[in-house]
Design a protein around this nucleic acid. Structure first.
Lengths: 305, 305
DNA sequence: CTGAAAGCGCTTACAG
DNA sequence: CTGAAAGCGCTTACAG
Protein backbone atom coordinates (compact mmCIF):
# COMPACT_ATOMS: atom_id res chain seq x y z
CA UNK A 1 0.00 0.00 0.00
CA UNK A 2 2.57 2.50 1.10
CA UNK A 3 4.81 1.25 -1.65
CA UNK A 4 2.13 1.93 -4.23
CA UNK A 5 1.56 5.47 -2.96
CA UNK A 6 5.23 6.25 -2.98
CA UNK A 7 5.54 4.74 -6.43
CA UNK A 8 2.64 6.80 -7.78
CA UNK A 9 4.13 9.98 -6.39
CA UNK A 10 7.33 9.19 -8.22
CA UNK A 11 5.45 8.95 -11.46
CA UNK A 12 5.28 5.19 -11.62
CA UNK A 13 2.80 3.88 -14.17
CA UNK A 14 2.13 0.15 -14.33
CA UNK A 15 2.82 -1.56 -17.61
CA UNK A 16 -0.51 -2.64 -19.00
CA UNK A 17 0.90 -5.23 -21.33
CA UNK A 18 2.57 -6.94 -18.46
CA UNK A 19 -0.48 -6.93 -16.23
CA UNK A 20 -2.60 -8.17 -19.10
CA UNK A 21 -0.23 -10.94 -19.94
CA UNK A 22 -0.15 -12.00 -16.33
CA UNK A 23 -3.88 -12.48 -16.49
CA UNK A 24 -5.18 -9.40 -14.74
CA UNK A 25 -8.61 -9.52 -16.30
CA UNK A 26 -10.43 -8.38 -19.39
CA UNK A 27 -8.10 -7.14 -22.08
CA UNK A 28 -9.52 -7.34 -25.59
CA UNK A 29 -13.02 -6.11 -26.30
CA UNK A 30 -14.70 -6.42 -29.68
CA UNK A 31 -16.96 -3.59 -30.81
CA UNK A 32 -19.62 -4.11 -33.43
CA UNK A 33 -20.45 -0.59 -34.46
CA UNK A 34 -22.35 1.17 -37.16
CA UNK A 35 -20.11 2.83 -39.69
CA UNK A 36 -23.01 4.82 -41.09
CA UNK A 37 -22.44 8.50 -41.02
CA UNK A 38 -24.66 9.86 -38.31
CA UNK A 39 -23.70 12.23 -35.56
CA UNK A 40 -25.15 9.82 -33.05
CA UNK A 41 -23.09 6.85 -34.21
CA UNK A 42 -19.87 8.84 -34.60
CA UNK A 43 -20.19 10.35 -31.14
CA UNK A 44 -20.91 6.96 -29.64
CA UNK A 45 -17.84 5.47 -31.32
CA UNK A 46 -15.66 8.25 -29.97
CA UNK A 47 -17.13 7.77 -26.49
CA UNK A 48 -16.43 4.04 -26.57
CA UNK A 49 -12.84 4.71 -27.60
CA UNK A 50 -12.25 7.22 -24.84
CA UNK A 51 -13.78 5.07 -22.12
CA UNK A 52 -11.82 2.01 -23.28
CA UNK A 53 -8.57 3.97 -23.30
CA UNK A 54 -9.04 5.12 -19.72
CA UNK A 55 -9.49 1.49 -18.68
CA UNK A 56 -6.59 0.17 -20.72
CA UNK A 57 -8.89 -2.01 -22.79
CA UNK A 58 -7.82 -2.91 -26.28
CA UNK A 59 -10.61 -2.54 -28.82
CA UNK A 60 -11.23 -4.57 -31.94
CA UNK A 61 -13.53 -2.43 -34.07
CA UNK A 62 -15.75 -4.16 -36.62
CA UNK A 63 -17.99 -1.91 -38.72
CA UNK A 64 -21.35 -3.14 -39.88
CA UNK A 65 -23.89 -1.50 -42.13
CA UNK A 66 -26.34 -4.26 -42.88
CA UNK A 67 -29.36 -4.94 -40.73
CA UNK A 68 -29.28 -8.69 -41.24
CA UNK A 69 -29.22 -10.48 -37.88
CA UNK A 70 -27.10 -13.36 -39.19
CA UNK A 71 -24.33 -10.92 -40.10
CA UNK A 72 -24.23 -9.72 -36.51
CA UNK A 73 -23.86 -13.27 -35.26
CA UNK A 74 -21.13 -14.08 -37.79
CA UNK A 75 -19.20 -10.94 -37.00
CA UNK A 76 -19.41 -11.63 -33.27
CA UNK A 77 -18.12 -15.13 -33.93
CA UNK A 78 -15.26 -13.72 -35.97
CA UNK A 79 -14.41 -11.33 -33.14
CA UNK A 80 -14.18 -14.20 -30.68
CA UNK A 81 -11.89 -16.05 -33.09
CA UNK A 82 -9.75 -12.93 -33.25
CA UNK A 83 -9.28 -12.99 -29.52
CA UNK A 84 -12.09 -10.77 -28.26
CA UNK A 85 -12.84 -11.70 -24.65
CA UNK A 86 -16.03 -9.66 -24.60
CA UNK A 87 -18.17 -7.83 -27.14
CA UNK A 88 -19.96 -4.49 -27.16
CA UNK A 89 -22.84 -3.88 -29.56
CA UNK A 90 -24.21 -0.48 -30.52
CA UNK A 91 -27.78 0.16 -31.71
CA UNK A 92 -29.51 -1.59 -33.34
CA UNK A 93 -27.30 -4.67 -33.21
CA UNK A 94 -27.82 -5.73 -29.61
CA UNK A 95 -31.44 -6.57 -30.34
CA UNK A 96 -30.41 -8.77 -33.23
CA UNK A 97 -28.60 -11.49 -31.31
CA UNK A 98 -30.82 -14.27 -30.10
CA UNK A 99 -30.10 -16.11 -26.88
CA UNK A 100 -28.83 -19.16 -28.74
CA UNK A 101 -26.17 -17.15 -30.54
CA UNK A 102 -25.12 -15.50 -27.31
CA UNK A 103 -24.46 -18.71 -25.40
CA UNK A 104 -22.72 -20.12 -28.46
CA UNK A 105 -20.27 -17.20 -28.45
CA UNK A 106 -19.17 -17.93 -24.92
CA UNK A 107 -18.02 -14.41 -24.07
CA UNK A 108 -19.83 -11.71 -22.10
CA UNK A 109 -21.83 -9.28 -24.21
CA UNK A 110 -22.93 -5.70 -23.67
CA UNK A 111 -25.63 -3.76 -25.47
CA UNK A 112 -25.30 0.02 -25.45
CA UNK A 113 -28.25 2.42 -25.62
CA UNK A 114 -30.84 -0.34 -25.81
CA UNK A 115 -34.53 0.23 -25.23
CA UNK A 116 -34.91 -2.46 -22.58
CA UNK A 117 -32.94 -5.09 -20.68
CA UNK A 118 -31.84 -8.03 -22.85
CA UNK A 119 -31.60 -11.53 -21.49
CA UNK A 120 -28.01 -12.75 -21.28
CA UNK A 121 -26.51 -9.33 -21.93
CA UNK A 122 -25.24 -6.36 -19.95
CA UNK A 123 -27.26 -3.36 -21.05
CA UNK A 124 -26.75 0.36 -20.46
CA UNK A 125 -29.56 2.69 -21.35
CA UNK A 126 -31.86 5.45 -20.24
CA UNK A 127 -35.55 5.21 -19.48
CA UNK A 128 -36.80 5.91 -22.99
CA UNK A 129 -40.45 5.94 -21.98
CA UNK A 130 -39.79 8.38 -19.18
CA UNK A 131 -37.63 10.62 -21.36
CA UNK A 132 -40.20 10.83 -24.15
CA UNK A 133 -42.85 11.48 -21.55
CA UNK A 134 -40.78 14.34 -20.13
CA UNK A 135 -40.49 15.96 -23.55
CA UNK A 136 -44.22 15.88 -24.23
CA UNK A 137 -44.98 16.99 -20.68
CA UNK A 138 -42.74 20.02 -21.21
CA UNK A 139 -44.79 20.99 -24.25
CA UNK A 140 -48.04 20.44 -22.38
CA UNK A 141 -46.74 22.61 -19.55
CA UNK A 142 -45.91 25.31 -22.08
CA UNK A 143 -49.53 25.39 -23.16
CA UNK A 144 -49.57 23.15 -26.22
CA UNK A 145 -52.55 20.89 -26.74
CA UNK A 146 -52.18 19.64 -30.27
CA UNK A 147 -48.80 17.94 -30.36
CA UNK A 148 -47.68 16.06 -33.44
CA UNK A 149 -45.28 13.14 -33.15
CA UNK A 150 -42.77 11.83 -35.67
CA UNK A 151 -42.06 8.25 -34.66
CA UNK A 152 -39.13 6.07 -35.70
CA UNK A 153 -39.31 2.68 -37.42
CA UNK A 154 -41.62 0.55 -35.33
CA UNK A 155 -39.56 -2.62 -35.64
CA UNK A 156 -37.04 -0.77 -33.47
CA UNK A 157 -37.83 -1.08 -29.79
CA UNK A 158 -36.49 2.43 -29.09
CA UNK A 159 -39.15 3.85 -31.37
CA UNK A 160 -41.91 2.00 -29.59
CA UNK A 161 -40.71 3.08 -26.16
CA UNK A 162 -40.54 6.73 -27.20
CA UNK A 163 -44.00 6.62 -28.72
CA UNK A 164 -45.31 5.00 -25.56
CA UNK A 165 -43.81 7.79 -23.47
CA UNK A 166 -45.39 10.45 -25.64
CA UNK A 167 -48.80 8.83 -25.35
CA UNK A 168 -48.43 8.34 -21.61
CA UNK A 169 -47.83 12.08 -21.18
CA UNK A 170 -51.01 12.91 -23.05
CA UNK A 171 -53.09 10.34 -21.27
CA UNK A 172 -51.80 11.57 -17.89
CA UNK A 173 -53.43 14.90 -18.75
CA UNK A 174 -56.66 13.29 -19.83
CA UNK A 175 -55.94 13.79 -23.54
CA UNK A 176 -56.40 11.14 -26.21
CA UNK A 177 -53.56 10.84 -28.78
CA UNK A 178 -55.26 11.31 -32.16
CA UNK A 179 -54.03 9.08 -34.99
CA UNK A 180 -53.81 11.96 -37.45
CA UNK A 181 -51.09 13.60 -35.32
CA UNK A 182 -48.72 10.65 -35.68
CA UNK A 183 -46.38 10.47 -38.68
CA UNK A 184 -44.10 7.58 -39.52
CA UNK A 185 -40.41 8.41 -40.03
CA UNK A 186 -37.29 6.29 -40.42
CA UNK A 187 -34.82 8.19 -38.16
CA UNK A 188 -33.49 10.03 -41.22
CA UNK A 189 -33.39 13.77 -41.93
CA UNK A 190 -35.47 13.58 -45.11
CA UNK A 191 -38.21 11.64 -43.37
CA UNK A 192 -38.43 14.43 -40.80
CA UNK A 193 -39.18 16.90 -43.57
CA UNK A 194 -41.82 14.65 -45.11
CA UNK A 195 -43.50 13.99 -41.78
CA UNK A 196 -43.52 17.68 -40.90
CA UNK A 197 -45.19 18.51 -44.20
CA UNK A 198 -47.77 15.83 -43.59
CA UNK A 199 -48.58 17.13 -40.11
CA UNK A 200 -48.52 20.83 -41.02
CA UNK A 201 -50.84 20.23 -43.97
CA UNK A 202 -53.55 18.96 -41.66
CA UNK A 203 -56.71 21.05 -41.53
CA UNK A 204 -56.04 21.54 -37.84
CA UNK A 205 -52.23 21.39 -37.65
CA UNK A 206 -50.25 20.85 -34.44
CA UNK A 207 -48.63 23.76 -32.56
CA UNK A 208 -45.74 21.53 -31.54
CA UNK A 209 -43.99 18.47 -32.95
CA UNK A 210 -41.83 15.96 -31.10
CA UNK A 211 -39.54 13.70 -33.12
CA UNK A 212 -38.00 10.41 -32.01
CA UNK A 213 -34.48 11.62 -32.78
CA UNK A 214 -32.56 14.80 -33.58
CA UNK A 215 -32.09 13.99 -37.26
CA UNK A 216 -35.82 13.93 -37.84
CA UNK A 217 -36.34 16.96 -35.61
CA UNK A 218 -33.82 18.85 -37.75
CA UNK A 219 -35.91 17.90 -40.77
CA UNK A 220 -39.02 19.24 -39.06
CA UNK A 221 -37.27 22.55 -38.38
CA UNK A 222 -36.13 22.71 -41.97
CA UNK A 223 -39.65 22.16 -43.29
CA UNK A 224 -41.05 24.73 -40.87
CA UNK A 225 -38.46 27.29 -41.95
CA UNK A 226 -39.27 26.63 -45.57
CA UNK A 227 -42.90 27.44 -44.81
CA UNK A 228 -41.86 30.69 -43.24
CA UNK A 229 -43.14 29.77 -39.80
CA UNK A 230 -41.80 31.79 -36.88
CA UNK A 231 -40.09 29.39 -34.53
CA UNK A 232 -40.84 28.57 -31.79
CA UNK A 233 -43.93 30.81 -31.73
CA UNK A 234 -45.78 29.20 -34.61
CA UNK A 235 -44.35 25.76 -34.01
CA UNK A 236 -42.35 24.27 -31.15
CA UNK A 237 -40.08 21.32 -31.97
CA UNK A 238 -38.30 18.74 -29.83
CA UNK A 239 -35.74 16.07 -30.69
CA UNK A 240 -34.07 13.19 -28.90
CA UNK A 241 -30.36 12.31 -28.38
CA UNK A 242 -28.72 15.75 -28.14
CA UNK A 243 -26.40 15.09 -31.05
CA UNK A 244 -24.20 17.75 -32.62
CA UNK A 245 -27.05 18.64 -34.94
CA UNK A 246 -29.04 20.02 -32.03
CA UNK A 247 -26.83 23.08 -31.81
CA UNK A 248 -26.29 23.50 -35.55
CA UNK A 249 -29.90 24.09 -36.45
CA UNK A 250 -31.84 27.29 -35.97
CA UNK A 251 -33.46 27.61 -33.58
CA UNK A 252 -31.33 25.31 -31.47
CA UNK A 253 -33.14 22.17 -30.49
CA UNK A 254 -34.77 21.20 -27.22
CA UNK A 255 -33.91 17.54 -26.78
CA UNK A 256 -33.02 14.66 -24.46
CA UNK A 257 -29.37 14.14 -23.66
CA UNK A 258 -28.27 10.55 -23.21
CA UNK A 259 -25.02 10.13 -21.25
CA UNK A 260 -23.25 8.07 -23.92
CA UNK A 261 -19.83 8.09 -22.31
CA UNK A 262 -21.23 6.94 -18.98
CA UNK A 263 -23.21 4.21 -20.70
CA UNK A 264 -20.09 2.96 -22.42
CA UNK A 265 -18.18 3.10 -19.15
CA UNK A 266 -20.82 1.19 -17.20
CA UNK A 267 -21.05 -1.45 -19.91
CA UNK A 268 -17.27 -1.92 -19.77
CA UNK A 269 -17.34 -2.31 -16.00
CA UNK A 270 -20.08 -4.91 -16.34
CA UNK A 271 -18.01 -6.77 -18.94
CA UNK A 272 -14.96 -6.70 -16.70
CA UNK A 273 -16.96 -8.22 -13.87
CA UNK A 274 -18.53 -10.83 -16.11
CA UNK A 275 -15.11 -11.76 -17.48
CA UNK A 276 -13.68 -12.17 -14.01
CA UNK A 277 -16.55 -14.44 -13.05
CA UNK A 278 -16.70 -16.26 -16.33
CA UNK A 279 -16.84 -19.66 -14.66
CA UNK A 280 -20.15 -18.77 -13.09
CA UNK A 281 -23.46 -18.50 -14.92
CA UNK A 282 -23.63 -15.28 -16.93
CA UNK A 283 -25.42 -12.62 -14.92
CA UNK A 284 -27.20 -10.06 -17.06
CA UNK A 285 -26.96 -6.55 -15.68
CA UNK A 286 -29.00 -3.54 -16.64
CA UNK A 287 -27.75 -0.02 -15.95
CA UNK A 288 -30.43 2.63 -16.30
CA UNK A 289 -28.76 6.04 -16.34
CA UNK A 290 -30.33 9.44 -15.86
CA UNK A 291 -31.28 11.44 -18.93
CA UNK A 292 -31.43 15.22 -19.13
CA UNK A 293 -34.09 17.31 -20.77
CA UNK A 294 -32.22 20.18 -22.40
CA UNK A 295 -34.32 23.22 -23.22
CA UNK A 296 -33.12 25.31 -26.13
CA UNK A 297 -34.56 27.83 -28.55
CA UNK A 298 -36.98 25.53 -30.35
CA UNK A 299 -39.43 25.60 -27.43
CA UNK A 300 -40.68 28.25 -25.03
CA UNK A 301 -43.78 28.81 -22.93
CA UNK A 302 -46.66 29.43 -25.29
CA UNK A 303 -48.50 31.57 -22.82
CA UNK A 304 -46.29 33.82 -20.73
CA UNK A 305 -47.34 33.62 -17.08
CA UNK B 1 6.86 -18.57 -42.64
CA UNK B 2 4.96 -21.71 -43.37
CA UNK B 3 4.34 -22.09 -39.69
CA UNK B 4 2.77 -18.65 -39.56
CA UNK B 5 0.49 -19.35 -42.50
CA UNK B 6 -0.66 -22.62 -41.06
CA UNK B 7 -1.20 -20.95 -37.72
CA UNK B 8 -3.25 -18.16 -39.27
CA UNK B 9 -5.43 -20.64 -41.11
CA UNK B 10 -6.13 -22.37 -37.82
CA UNK B 11 -7.33 -19.11 -36.36
CA UNK B 12 -4.21 -18.24 -34.41
CA UNK B 13 -4.07 -14.65 -33.25
CA UNK B 14 -0.89 -13.40 -31.59
CA UNK B 15 -1.24 -12.05 -28.09
CA UNK B 16 -0.57 -8.35 -28.31
CA UNK B 17 0.22 -7.92 -24.64
CA UNK B 18 2.92 -10.51 -24.91
CA UNK B 19 4.47 -9.05 -28.05
CA UNK B 20 4.34 -5.60 -26.51
CA UNK B 21 5.92 -6.72 -23.31
CA UNK B 22 8.66 -8.44 -25.24
CA UNK B 23 9.52 -5.14 -26.81
CA UNK B 24 7.99 -5.39 -30.24
CA UNK B 25 7.76 -1.69 -30.82
CA UNK B 26 5.43 1.21 -30.18
CA UNK B 27 2.68 0.39 -27.75
CA UNK B 28 1.23 3.37 -25.94
CA UNK B 29 0.28 6.49 -27.89
CA UNK B 30 -1.00 9.65 -26.27
CA UNK B 31 -3.66 11.65 -28.08
CA UNK B 32 -4.22 15.31 -27.37
CA UNK B 33 -7.62 15.91 -28.87
CA UNK B 34 -10.24 18.58 -28.89
CA UNK B 35 -13.28 17.68 -26.82
CA UNK B 36 -15.29 20.50 -28.37
CA UNK B 37 -18.44 19.34 -30.02
CA UNK B 38 -17.88 19.62 -33.72
CA UNK B 39 -18.58 17.00 -36.33
CA UNK B 40 -15.03 17.39 -37.57
CA UNK B 41 -13.43 16.73 -34.21
CA UNK B 42 -15.73 13.86 -33.30
CA UNK B 43 -15.17 12.13 -36.61
CA UNK B 44 -11.42 12.60 -36.29
CA UNK B 45 -11.46 11.09 -32.79
CA UNK B 46 -13.40 8.07 -34.02
CA UNK B 47 -10.99 7.66 -36.94
CA UNK B 48 -7.97 7.76 -34.62
CA UNK B 49 -9.56 5.12 -32.39
CA UNK B 50 -10.32 2.79 -35.27
CA UNK B 51 -6.89 3.10 -36.84
CA UNK B 52 -5.19 2.55 -33.50
CA UNK B 53 -7.30 -0.52 -32.79
CA UNK B 54 -6.34 -2.13 -36.09
CA UNK B 55 -2.67 -1.64 -35.21
CA UNK B 56 -3.00 -2.83 -31.64
CA UNK B 57 -1.93 0.52 -30.29
CA UNK B 58 -3.10 1.52 -26.86
CA UNK B 59 -4.37 5.10 -26.72
CA UNK B 60 -4.18 7.55 -23.87
CA UNK B 61 -6.80 10.19 -24.65
CA UNK B 62 -6.38 13.64 -23.15
CA UNK B 63 -9.05 16.20 -23.99
CA UNK B 64 -8.19 19.85 -24.28
CA UNK B 65 -10.38 22.85 -24.87
CA UNK B 66 -8.10 25.77 -24.20
CA UNK B 67 -6.00 27.35 -26.88
CA UNK B 68 -3.12 28.21 -24.59
CA UNK B 69 0.12 26.79 -25.98
CA UNK B 70 1.58 26.15 -22.52
CA UNK B 71 -1.32 23.83 -21.70
CA UNK B 72 -0.48 21.75 -24.74
CA UNK B 73 3.10 21.42 -23.60
CA UNK B 74 2.11 20.52 -20.04
CA UNK B 75 -0.39 17.92 -21.20
CA UNK B 76 2.17 16.36 -23.53
CA UNK B 77 4.61 16.20 -20.62
CA UNK B 78 1.97 14.55 -18.47
CA UNK B 79 1.32 11.99 -21.20
CA UNK B 80 4.99 11.08 -21.34
CA UNK B 81 4.98 10.67 -17.56
CA UNK B 82 1.98 8.39 -17.94
CA UNK B 83 3.92 6.14 -20.25
CA UNK B 84 3.06 7.48 -23.69
CA UNK B 85 5.84 6.48 -26.09
CA UNK B 86 4.56 8.80 -28.80
CA UNK B 87 1.99 11.57 -29.07
CA UNK B 88 -0.60 12.52 -31.69
CA UNK B 89 -1.97 16.05 -31.81
CA UNK B 90 -5.16 17.12 -33.58
CA UNK B 91 -5.84 20.63 -34.92
CA UNK B 92 -4.99 23.20 -33.78
CA UNK B 93 -2.61 21.82 -31.17
CA UNK B 94 0.22 20.63 -33.39
CA UNK B 95 1.05 24.21 -34.31
CA UNK B 96 1.26 25.18 -30.67
CA UNK B 97 4.31 23.14 -29.69
CA UNK B 98 7.57 24.88 -30.24
CA UNK B 99 10.71 22.99 -31.16
CA UNK B 100 12.11 23.38 -27.67
CA UNK B 101 9.14 21.69 -26.07
CA UNK B 102 9.31 18.88 -28.61
CA UNK B 103 12.89 17.91 -27.97
CA UNK B 104 12.27 18.22 -24.25
CA UNK B 105 9.49 15.62 -24.48
CA UNK B 106 11.82 13.06 -25.98
CA UNK B 107 9.12 11.07 -27.78
CA UNK B 108 8.10 11.12 -31.44
CA UNK B 109 5.22 13.45 -32.24
CA UNK B 110 2.63 13.50 -35.00
CA UNK B 111 0.41 16.35 -36.13
CA UNK B 112 -2.81 15.41 -37.90
CA UNK B 113 -4.50 17.57 -40.52
CA UNK B 114 -1.95 20.34 -40.31
CA UNK B 115 -1.62 23.08 -42.89
CA UNK B 116 2.07 22.53 -43.53
CA UNK B 117 5.02 20.38 -42.49
CA UNK B 118 6.22 21.05 -38.95
CA UNK B 119 9.85 20.76 -37.96
CA UNK B 120 10.50 17.81 -35.67
CA UNK B 121 7.07 16.29 -36.19
CA UNK B 122 5.44 13.70 -38.42
CA UNK B 123 2.60 15.45 -40.24
CA UNK B 124 -0.30 14.07 -42.26
CA UNK B 125 -2.35 16.50 -44.30
CA UNK B 126 -3.78 17.41 -47.64
CA UNK B 127 -2.67 20.20 -49.94
CA UNK B 128 -4.91 22.90 -48.52
CA UNK B 129 -3.92 25.47 -51.11
CA UNK B 130 -4.62 23.06 -53.94
CA UNK B 131 -7.92 21.95 -52.48
CA UNK B 132 -9.20 25.48 -51.99
CA UNK B 133 -8.03 26.32 -55.48
CA UNK B 134 -9.98 23.33 -56.86
CA UNK B 135 -13.16 24.54 -55.17
CA UNK B 136 -12.96 28.03 -56.58
CA UNK B 137 -11.92 26.70 -59.98
CA UNK B 138 -15.05 24.53 -60.03
CA UNK B 139 -17.17 27.62 -59.48
CA UNK B 140 -15.29 29.54 -62.17
CA UNK B 141 -15.81 26.62 -64.56
CA UNK B 142 -19.51 26.72 -63.77
CA UNK B 143 -19.68 30.29 -64.93
CA UNK B 144 -19.39 32.26 -61.69
CA UNK B 145 -17.37 35.42 -61.72
CA UNK B 146 -18.21 37.11 -58.45
CA UNK B 147 -17.26 34.60 -55.79
CA UNK B 148 -17.45 35.53 -52.13
CA UNK B 149 -15.15 33.88 -49.61
CA UNK B 150 -15.72 33.26 -45.90
CA UNK B 151 -12.28 32.80 -44.39
CA UNK B 152 -11.37 31.22 -41.05
CA UNK B 153 -9.40 32.83 -38.22
CA UNK B 154 -6.21 34.12 -39.77
CA UNK B 155 -3.97 33.09 -36.89
CA UNK B 156 -4.72 29.54 -38.01
CA UNK B 157 -2.44 28.40 -40.81
CA UNK B 158 -5.22 26.32 -42.38
CA UNK B 159 -7.24 29.45 -42.92
CA UNK B 160 -4.37 31.22 -44.62
CA UNK B 161 -3.66 28.29 -46.91
CA UNK B 162 -7.29 28.04 -47.97
CA UNK B 163 -7.52 31.74 -48.65
CA UNK B 164 -4.34 31.54 -50.69
CA UNK B 165 -5.81 28.73 -52.77
CA UNK B 166 -8.96 30.70 -53.44
CA UNK B 167 -6.97 33.71 -54.57
CA UNK B 168 -4.67 31.61 -56.71
CA UNK B 169 -7.66 30.22 -58.60
CA UNK B 170 -8.93 33.70 -59.38
CA UNK B 171 -5.54 35.01 -60.35
CA UNK B 172 -4.98 32.02 -62.65
CA UNK B 173 -8.01 33.23 -64.61
CA UNK B 174 -6.80 36.78 -64.70
CA UNK B 175 -9.25 37.96 -62.03
CA UNK B 176 -8.38 40.14 -59.06
CA UNK B 177 -9.84 39.08 -55.68
CA UNK B 178 -11.77 42.15 -54.47
CA UNK B 179 -11.55 42.95 -50.76
CA UNK B 180 -15.29 43.47 -50.42
CA UNK B 181 -15.93 39.82 -51.33
CA UNK B 182 -13.94 38.51 -48.35
CA UNK B 183 -15.68 38.07 -45.00
CA UNK B 184 -13.98 37.07 -41.75
CA UNK B 185 -15.46 34.06 -39.93
CA UNK B 186 -14.29 32.00 -36.97
CA UNK B 187 -15.04 28.44 -38.24
CA UNK B 188 -18.39 28.50 -36.38
CA UNK B 189 -21.91 28.12 -37.76
CA UNK B 190 -23.14 31.51 -36.56
CA UNK B 191 -20.21 33.31 -38.16
CA UNK B 192 -21.19 31.71 -41.46
CA UNK B 193 -24.61 33.30 -41.22
CA UNK B 194 -23.19 36.69 -40.37
CA UNK B 195 -20.64 36.55 -43.17
CA UNK B 196 -23.29 35.49 -45.68
CA UNK B 197 -25.49 38.40 -44.70
CA UNK B 198 -22.57 40.76 -45.09
CA UNK B 199 -21.74 39.46 -48.56
CA UNK B 200 -25.33 39.22 -49.80
CA UNK B 201 -26.08 42.76 -48.66
CA UNK B 202 -23.43 44.11 -51.01
CA UNK B 203 -24.71 46.32 -53.77
CA UNK B 204 -23.27 43.84 -56.23
CA UNK B 205 -23.54 40.53 -54.32
CA UNK B 206 -21.66 37.36 -55.23
CA UNK B 207 -23.35 34.53 -57.17
CA UNK B 208 -21.32 31.97 -55.25
CA UNK B 209 -19.71 31.75 -51.81
CA UNK B 210 -16.93 29.45 -50.68
CA UNK B 211 -16.40 28.91 -46.96
CA UNK B 212 -13.25 27.64 -45.22
CA UNK B 213 -15.15 24.83 -43.51
CA UNK B 214 -18.51 23.05 -43.60
CA UNK B 215 -19.83 24.64 -40.42
CA UNK B 216 -19.57 28.11 -41.90
CA UNK B 217 -20.89 26.89 -45.26
CA UNK B 218 -23.94 25.49 -43.46
CA UNK B 219 -24.44 28.94 -41.97
CA UNK B 220 -24.24 30.48 -45.44
CA UNK B 221 -26.92 28.07 -46.69
CA UNK B 222 -29.09 28.89 -43.72
CA UNK B 223 -28.83 32.63 -44.34
CA UNK B 224 -29.55 32.13 -48.03
CA UNK B 225 -32.61 30.02 -47.28
CA UNK B 226 -33.85 32.66 -44.88
CA UNK B 227 -33.65 35.20 -47.69
CA UNK B 228 -35.71 32.93 -49.87
CA UNK B 229 -32.95 32.47 -52.45
CA UNK B 230 -33.30 29.51 -54.78
CA UNK B 231 -30.25 27.31 -54.30
CA UNK B 232 -28.05 26.71 -56.13
CA UNK B 233 -29.48 28.90 -58.93
CA UNK B 234 -29.38 32.17 -57.06
CA UNK B 235 -26.36 31.26 -55.00
CA UNK B 236 -23.87 28.42 -55.17
CA UNK B 237 -22.14 27.45 -51.92
CA UNK B 238 -19.07 25.32 -51.16
CA UNK B 239 -17.66 24.05 -47.89
CA UNK B 240 -14.50 22.27 -46.77
CA UNK B 241 -13.99 19.01 -44.76
CA UNK B 242 -16.99 16.91 -45.83
CA UNK B 243 -18.27 16.52 -42.30
CA UNK B 244 -21.62 14.96 -41.45
CA UNK B 245 -23.20 18.39 -41.77
CA UNK B 246 -22.57 18.37 -45.51
CA UNK B 247 -25.33 15.83 -46.09
CA UNK B 248 -27.72 17.18 -43.45
CA UNK B 249 -28.19 20.61 -45.00
CA UNK B 250 -30.37 21.45 -47.96
CA UNK B 251 -29.17 21.56 -50.60
CA UNK B 252 -26.42 19.09 -49.79
CA UNK B 253 -23.03 20.68 -49.79
CA UNK B 254 -20.28 20.61 -52.39
CA UNK B 255 -17.08 20.31 -50.37
CA UNK B 256 -13.57 18.89 -50.03
CA UNK B 257 -13.21 15.50 -48.42
CA UNK B 258 -10.11 14.97 -46.33
CA UNK B 259 -9.17 11.31 -45.81
CA UNK B 260 -9.07 11.51 -42.01
CA UNK B 261 -8.72 7.78 -41.36
CA UNK B 262 -5.82 7.50 -43.81
CA UNK B 263 -4.16 10.52 -42.24
CA UNK B 264 -4.42 8.96 -38.80
CA UNK B 265 -3.08 5.67 -40.15
CA UNK B 266 -0.12 7.28 -41.88
CA UNK B 267 0.74 9.27 -38.79
CA UNK B 268 0.71 6.10 -36.70
CA UNK B 269 2.99 4.33 -39.15
CA UNK B 270 5.38 7.27 -38.99
CA UNK B 271 5.33 7.14 -35.21
CA UNK B 272 6.03 3.41 -35.21
CA UNK B 273 9.05 3.96 -37.44
CA UNK B 274 10.30 6.85 -35.37
CA UNK B 275 9.91 4.82 -32.20
CA UNK B 276 11.86 1.92 -33.66
CA UNK B 277 14.68 4.29 -34.66
CA UNK B 278 14.53 6.35 -31.51
CA UNK B 279 18.28 6.24 -31.04
CA UNK B 280 18.80 8.11 -34.26
CA UNK B 281 18.06 11.76 -34.84
CA UNK B 282 14.33 12.36 -35.16
CA UNK B 283 13.34 12.39 -38.81
CA UNK B 284 10.32 14.54 -39.54
CA UNK B 285 8.05 13.05 -42.16
CA UNK B 286 5.30 14.75 -44.07
CA UNK B 287 2.50 12.73 -45.69
CA UNK B 288 0.45 14.72 -48.18
CA UNK B 289 -2.65 12.72 -49.04
CA UNK B 290 -5.05 13.21 -51.92
CA UNK B 291 -8.20 15.20 -51.31
CA UNK B 292 -11.48 14.77 -53.17
CA UNK B 293 -13.73 17.48 -54.48
CA UNK B 294 -17.25 16.20 -53.87
CA UNK B 295 -19.94 17.86 -55.94
CA UNK B 296 -23.39 17.92 -54.40
CA UNK B 297 -26.58 19.91 -54.77
CA UNK B 298 -25.26 23.27 -53.60
CA UNK B 299 -23.45 23.87 -56.92
CA UNK B 300 -24.23 23.25 -60.56
CA UNK B 301 -23.20 24.72 -63.90
CA UNK B 302 -24.56 28.23 -64.08
CA UNK B 303 -24.83 28.20 -67.86
CA UNK B 304 -26.01 24.90 -69.29
CA UNK B 305 -23.86 23.86 -72.27
C1' DC C 1 20.99 -19.87 -41.00
C1' DT C 2 18.40 -22.32 -37.26
C1' DG C 3 16.83 -23.16 -32.60
C1' DA C 4 16.93 -22.95 -27.44
C1' DA C 5 17.12 -19.67 -23.78
C1' DA C 6 16.57 -15.50 -21.44
C1' DG C 7 13.75 -11.85 -20.24
C1' DC C 8 10.01 -8.14 -20.84
C1' DG C 9 6.85 -6.51 -15.96
C1' DC C 10 3.39 -7.89 -14.03
C1' DT C 11 -0.27 -11.36 -11.14
C1' DT C 12 -1.32 -15.21 -8.66
C1' DA C 13 -1.02 -19.43 -6.40
C1' DC C 14 1.83 -21.28 -3.09
C1' DA C 15 5.31 -22.07 0.47
C1' DG C 16 6.81 -20.20 4.64
C1' DC D 1 -0.44 -12.57 6.72
C1' DT D 2 3.96 -11.94 4.07
C1' DG D 3 7.28 -12.82 0.48
C1' DA D 4 9.76 -15.54 -3.13
C1' DA D 5 8.84 -18.08 -7.26
C1' DA D 6 6.57 -19.47 -11.30
C1' DG D 7 4.53 -18.24 -15.43
C1' DC D 8 1.64 -15.39 -18.84
C1' DG D 9 3.22 -15.49 -24.66
C1' DC D 10 5.87 -13.27 -27.09
C1' DT D 11 10.80 -11.10 -29.17
C1' DT D 12 15.47 -10.83 -29.48
C1' DA D 13 20.17 -11.55 -28.75
C1' DC D 14 23.01 -15.35 -28.62
C1' DA D 15 24.92 -20.01 -28.84
C1' DG D 16 25.29 -23.74 -31.90
Amino acid sequence: MRVREAAASLGYVPNLSASRLAGAGLSRVGVIYNSGESAFQTTLTAAIATEAASRGLQLLFRPLLTRKPERVRDLAQELVSSGAEAIILVPPYAEMLDVGAMTELGVPLAGLVTASPIEGMATARIDNVGAAQAVTTLLLDQGHERIGVVVGPLNHSDSIARRDGHRAALIARGLTPPDELEAQGDFGFASGIACADQLLDLEHPPTAIVAANDEMAAGVLWAANRRGLRLPDDLAVCGFDDTLLATRVWPTLTTIRQPLAEMAGQAMEALKTAFRNRDEAPAATDAVLPFTLIERGSTKPKVQP
